[in-house]
């Protein structure tokens, strides 16, 4: 039981180093264990048995930022919390990625006021924005899949400028709805 049955008796196969490294990075991308508000509940839902993020090797939330690859900013970041979030990001070892989960983390959401950071991209660079208030677990998983796709295209030499991806929730609803005709 193993790769021989799926790939046949290859004995050996070749690939590029980039593919192998990016494959490793995406298949065990451990998120940092922290949630800031109600989006964290949906994040927990995504990790629990119903949606089961462990299918993608992501069930292991690391309580230490030094062992984490991915920071999911799940919730609104208050101005008092902002230095703490930045510090956690700085403590994560490279390579590291950030998902802004939900409207509050993406742009401040409904909290257009003095207390909340108007988008976490003011303090840390964001790779994927997931829309929704809060996003359903499917939306978060979709954002994570997009991040994996993005990571798998990264170059080892000249990493270049990272451009953020925006996940729109209305695209997702079409995907999530069952086909009525069928």
């Amino acid at each position: 039981m193993g790769i021989e049955q799926k790939a046949g008796d290859l004995g050996m196969f070749t690939t590029t180093l980039e593919t192998a490294v990016n494959w490793g990075r995406t298949r065990a991308m451990w998120p940092l264990l922290f949630g800031l508000a109600c989006c964290a509940i949906e994040m927990m839902g995504a990790q629990a048995s119903n949606y089961d993020l462990s299918r993608f090797g992501m069930e292991l939330n690391r309580p230490s930022p030094r062992q984490a690859d991915l920071m999911i900013v799940a919730g609104r970041v208050s101005r008092k919390m902002a230095p703490v979030v930045r510090r956690l990001y700085d403590q994560m070892s490279d390579p590291k990625w950030v998902i802004a989960m939900g409207d509050c983390a993406s742009c401040g959401g409904v909290y257009n006021n003095y207390a909340i950071v108007q988008g976490v991209d003011e303090i840390i660079p964001v790779d994927v924005y997931v829309a929704g208030c809060p996003p359903r677990p499917e939306a978060l998983i979709d954002g994570i899949m997009m991040l994996h796709e993005k990571v798998s295209q990264e170059k080892l030499i000249e990493p270049g400028k990272r451009e953020p991806i925006h996940v729109k929730s209305n695209n997702l609803i079409q995907v999530a709805l069952p086909n009525k005709k069928a």
Binding site: C107, G108, N112, N113, Y114, I116, Q118, D121, E122, I123, I124, P125, K161, R162
Partner: peptide, 27 residues
Amino acid sequence: DVPLGYEEVAFTFNQDAIYAQKHFVRE
């Protein structure tokens, strides 16, 4: 007497002007 909103809300028609002034962190 403190303003209620913190920053102008960005829509498609004015987001370019707002994002040009906003401070985003890059790597």
